[in-house]
Structures are given as structure tokens and as C-alpha cells.
């Protein structure tokens, strides 16, 4: 078995298995803990506070005017590279073909040249994120192995992807194998670290937003 076959064969299967079981286990791990019901009467009706939760999903995607001067730049970088990642993962032809083989359907993508430009921009933003993490005293203090390894493995996926697309640094088959292997490692790491925020972000905003809306509190 050559490296590419290994990467997209048994390695990918093992990685996907760990990914799925790990994600479920991590969510079950806290979801089964005690849920304390709030006995204080709500200020808002049930539909209103549920709507408040859903609204928070949207409102937290953009800083409140009171905060934007302090946080605007950081949030712009953060959201931009996330959007770049989504575009690359979901709208690049070979990725669509791969995902199509998993889900059974495909969708239109973007031209490769455009994806290349977006990839370079995303990598640049990702480097800026790392620079910020090591230079900003607050973020540096909060950072741990999880933050740096999650950054590293995501960067590895992007870098090997660009190398494979541009045929840089070796035979295409080897470059593609490196890319898929890096994805395998990312999938294995995913449930153990902060990458889980991909699953948490919207429920977290909605639940906390609904709880605040129930009180009529600001959200």
C-alpha cells in the first residue's frame, strides 16, 4: 500500500471513527451532567426568550457598537480566516468531489484560481492570528498547548493543500498524501481540543442568549 492509499484508506477511516466517537463522547460528557431548572418566573414569554436565543446567534457574529473600537480588528481577522476556511473546504472542486463521495451529492464550486487566491489570503490571516496570539499579552496568557497545536494542524492542512494544488515540493501523489494525512491528524485531534468550537458556537450563543433573554437581560 502506498502512502496515498494509506492516507485516504485505513488512516482516514480510523481518523473519521475517532472524530465521530470523540465528538459524541465529548458532548455526552457534559450533556449528561445535572441540568438545574430555573424556578424564578421568566420576564419574557417562552417564544420571546427562544427567539432571543436565536437572535444571539446572529448578533454575536458582529461586535456591539460599544465594543467595536476595541475588538473590531481582532474580530475582523478571526471571522475572515474562518470564512476563508469555509470557502476552501466547501467550494473547492476536489473537496466537493471528496465530500460528495461521503454524502452522495455534490454542489457547484469556485474556480481553482480564485480558491488559490483565497487560500493565500487565508494563510496570511492565519499567520496574523498566530502573531497576535504570541504578541498580545492577554491572548498569550490564555494560550496553551491546545491553542498552538490546533493552529499548527490547521495550518499544516492549508499549507499541504496549497503545495498539492500548486505541485510544489515533490510528486503530486506524495503532496496529496501529505495533505490527506494532515487532515487525518486534524480529525483525530478535533474532539480533544478547541476545534470543537465548530460544534459549540451556535448552540452556545443560542443557549446563553436564551437564558439572558428569559430575564429580559441584555445579550
Amino acid at each position: 500500500m502506498d502512502l496515498l492509499s494509506f492516507a485516504r484508506g485505513p488512516a482516514l477511516k480510523v481518523a473519521l471513527t475517532i472524530f465521530c466517537l470523540g465528538v459524541v463522547w465529548r458532548i455526552v460528557g457534559f450533556a449528561l451532567l445535572r441540568i438545574r431548572l430555573d424556578r424564578s418566573p421568566a420576564r419574557a414569554s417562552v417564544p420571546k426568550f427562544l427567539a432571543g436565543g436565536l437572535l444571539t446567534i446572529g448578533t454575536r457574529s458582529w461586535p456591539h457598537p460599544e465594543f467595536i473600537a476595541r475588538t473590531g480588528a481582532g474580530e475582523a481577522i478571526g471571522y475572515s480566516y474562518h470564512m476563508g476556511l469555509f470557502v476552501i473546504v466547501l467550494l473547492f472542486g476536489p473537496h466537493i468531489a471528496f465530500l460528495g463521495s461521503l454524502f452522495g451529492f455534490t454542489w457547484p464550486g469556485l474556480p481553482s484560481s480564485l480558491i488559490t487566491v483565497i487560500s493565500v489570503l487565508t494563510v496570511t490571516l492565519f499567520l496574523a492570528v498566530l502573531f497576535r496570539r504570541v504578541t498580545n499579552p492577554v491572548i498569550r496568557m490564555l494560550s496553551n498547548f491546545d491553542d498552538y497545536f490546533s493552529w499548527f494542524i490547521t495550518m499544516a492542512v492549508m499549507a499541504t493543500g496549497i503545495a498539492a494544488t500548486a505541485h510544489l515540493g515533490g510528486p503530486y501523489q506524495t503532496l496529496l498524501a501529505h495533505h490527506i494525512l494532515s487532515v487525518d491528524v486534524l480529525l483525530v485531534w478535533f474532539p480533544f481540543g478547541k476545534l470543537m468550537h465548530a460544534f459549540y458556537i451556535f448552540p452556545s450563543r443560542a443557549i446563553n442568549g436564551a437564558i439572558l433573554a428569559r430575564k429580559g437581560a441584555t445579550s
Binding site: R26, F30, L33, L142, K194, I207
Partner: peptide, 18 residues
């Protein structure tokens, strides 16, 4: 005191420092 909600909050932090 760490129920599901607090655990979820602790799990969700991405160390952005905002």
C-alpha cells in the same frame, strides 16, 4: 455545582481574550 450548563460554558471558551 458544575452542571451541564456551566460545563458547556467552560468547554466553549476559545481563548480569544475578547
Amino acid at each position: 455545582e458544575t452542571g451541564a450548563l456551566s460545563a458547556f460554558r467552560l468547554e466553549s471558551c476559545i481563548h480569544c481574550g475578547i
